[in-house]
Design a binder for these strands. Structure first.
Length: 572
RNA sequence: AGGGGAUUAGUGUAACGGUAGCACGAAUGGUUCUGGUCCAUUUAGUCGGGGUUCGAAUCCCUGAUCCCCUGCCA
């Protein structure tokens, strides 16, 4: 079945949207938003949210989705993140058209709304220190107690708040709080802070402001100003919804509906921006776009296609309970897309020299190879064949076990698109290491088929020694050794103790077919019988090719080998 | 005696009182000039206990388990 064509999944969020459309709750409008804080790079978990928000907008007539930066905390946010986020959303294939917004653009409006709330007697300036406020807040089981400043007059509050904005008070000396209910079992309703004083430079507003709005106060207003219909966020904000509703109701402002869904978890992966930042800052990886990172930029550099990621997001569904998706599902979506769309090439990662003894010394055959068996339109190309070749070292065994179908002394195999060859001799060095093979070829099998109908059990990839290009190949494995990287053995250890020391393996001296000379940065290929690879977009040059392994092909031989080894060790 | 949310094969999800289905994974076989792809088959589930009903994953009661909430983060 072609999962790309599978119809749009129905989930509880889409059901709510459909119901609201039916009852004409928002005049038939559907307007969502993706509201990242620009304090890190986007990752595959964000892709789930992006596909949900932009997806819902795209599926409904006239539906819109805004890209909005929730830049209300100047201490953590940077322009670099603003830029990368836009690049990533675009690369994933979505468009916010002309609706690029910043929460910081609404600061003035938010200020006026705050004045309105103060005037209504529903907000007050509080001078408690953060420690005192924490004490006053009470605990999960016990109610809080009122701040001594709770009953300040409207006039005094207005004056104090104006002076907060004017910069008359130092950081942390005062806050503006909503006057709600210090007894509420929901801690978020115990007179939450709306504004704090922060004499910090904001990446967009500079030093225009020294008071900054808190999330709960700001976010609903942002949604309201943009006339969002469905404000989709993650589960941990469920407890904040009463506050979201309270602010908008007290203000009598346009009121979107907040809906919470479960964030994505993936096996062998961390999704916390804080932890990802820790890996980058601590040089555990080569940056946000390291191909081992679950960031969109990392996946892109690794060779993922946007289609694969979008299809993955479609398959995982949307729900209200936490779950952890098997990374194998992501890789399945990847292979499915790459299999259909990547041109094939031959590349020998771990070369073993082969001399075809009965092949003429200076002859070169130009053999025709299929570019993509899944796509006839991709056409064919010529691959040069000559007397000295390289094959994959692991495609030869001197003493092959059962079920090993590849080359061995005296055995005949096919060289893909070329000839049948038979191994006649094995050359070893002083350590007994195989360094060269001698074979004979059957000229009648040119192109790869035997006119007498003779069968071989294996087809090997190869390159011509005189024509091939050298390349570096980077093999990637899971960044963590544990399904759940936070599952740490020792007290005091953290997720970094589960980092996989073999997450990157660099292979030098790989031999690739000459057609790859013109491969463009980021270009994706299937190296036949091995996996999907792409030209590294940062380090590859025409003189020094670098390929990243995006994902290996499924490998049943590896499974058989594992079984055989398991059986062997059982017998012992 | 805090509040909120949730629980369907190994994993992720569907079924909205009417045959528990799909995908991934795993296993087996077939096809194949990639041990890939493709095809076929198999595997395996409603958190427990009560009820309501002709009929319950779905409604009610009850218990268990998991997640979130005491930042001047979002």
């Amino acid at each position: 079945m072609n999962t790309n064509d599978s119809k749009t999944p129905t989930d509880f969020v889409r059901s709510i949207v459909a119901d609201d459309l039916k009852t004409n709750k928002y005049d038939g409008r559907v307007h969502t938003r993706f509201p990242p804080e620009p304090n890190g790079y986007l990752h595959i978990g964000h892709a789930k949210s992006i596909c949900l928000n932009f997806g819902i907008a795209a599926e409904n007539d006239g539906g819109k989705c805004n890209l909005r930066f929730d830049d209300t905390n100047p201490c953590k946010e940077e322009q670099e993140y603003v830029d990368s986020i836009q690049e990533d959303v675009r690369w994933l294939g979505w468009s916010w058209e002309d609706r690029l917004y910043f929460a910081s653009d609404y600061f003035e409006q938010m200020y006026e709304y705050a004045v309105a709330l103060i005037t209504k007697g529903k907000a007050y300036v509080c001078d408690l220190t953060s420690e005192e406020m924490s004490e006053h807040r009470g605990s999960l089981k016990n109610g809080g107690k009122a701040s001594p400043h709770r009953e300040r007059s409207v006039e005094e509050n207005l004056d104090l708040f104006r002076r907060m904005r004017a910069g008359e008070f130092p950081d942390g000396s005062r806050v503006l709080r909503a006057k709600i209910d210090m007894e509420s079992p929901n801690l978020n309703m115990r007179d939450p802070i709306m504004y704090r004083i922060l004499h910090a430079e904001h990446h967009r507003t500079g030093d225009d402001w020294c008071i900054y709005p808190m999330y709960d106060w700001a976010h609903g207003l942002e949604d309201s100003v943009e006339k969002i219909t469905h404000s989709i966020c993650t589960l941990e904000f469920e407890n904040h919804r009463p506050l979201y509703d309270w602010f908008l109701d007290e203000l009598g402002a346009y009121h979107p509906r907040q809906i919470e869904f479960a964030r994505l978890n993936l096996t062998y992966t961390i999704m916390s921006k804080r932890k990802l930042l820790e890996l980058v800052a601590g040089d555990y990886v080569g940056g946000w776009s390291d191909p081992r990172m679950p960031t969109i930029s990392g996946l892109r550099r690794r060779g993922y296609s946007p289609e694969a990621i979008r299809n993955f997001c479609k398959l995982i569904g949307v729900n209200k309970f936490n779950s952890t998706v098997d990374i194998a599902l992501l890789e399945h979506c990847l292979r499915e897309d790459l299999n259909k769309n990547s041109p094939r090439a031959m590349a020998v990662l771990n070369p073993l020299k082969v001399v075809i003894d009965n092949y003429p010394e200076d002859q070169v055959d130009e053999l025709e190879a299929v570019n993509n068996p899944e796509d006839p339109a991709a056409g064919t190309r010529k691959v040069p064949f000559s007397k000295v070749l390289y094959i994959e070292r692991e495609d030869f065994m001197e003493d092959p076990p059962k079920k090993f179908f590849r080359l061995a002394p005296g055995r005949e195999v096919r060289l893909r698109y070329a000839y049948y060859v038979t191994c006649t001799d094995v050359v070893k060095d002083e350590n007994g290491e195989v360094v060269e093979l001698h074979c004979t070829y059957d000229p009648a099998t040119r192109g790869g088929d035997s006119p007498d109908g003779r069968k071989v059990k294996a087809t090997l990839h190869w390159v011509s020694a005189d024509h091939c290009l050298d390349a570096e190949v980077r093999l990637y494995n899971n960044l963590f050794t544990k399904e759940n990287p936070d599952d740490v053995a020792d007290e005091g250890a953290d997720f970094k103790s589960n980092l996989n020391p073999d997450s990157l393996e660099v292979l030098a001296g790989c031999k690739v077919e000459p057609s790859l000379a013109t491969a463009e940065a980021g270009g994706r290929f299937q190296f036949e019988r091995q996996g999907y690879f792409c030209v590294d977009s940062e380090d590859s040059t025409p003189d020094a090719l670098v390929f990243n392994r995006t994902v290996a092909l499924r490998d049943t031989w590896a499974k058989i080998q594992k079984q055989q080894q398991a059986q062997k060790s059982q017998k012992k």
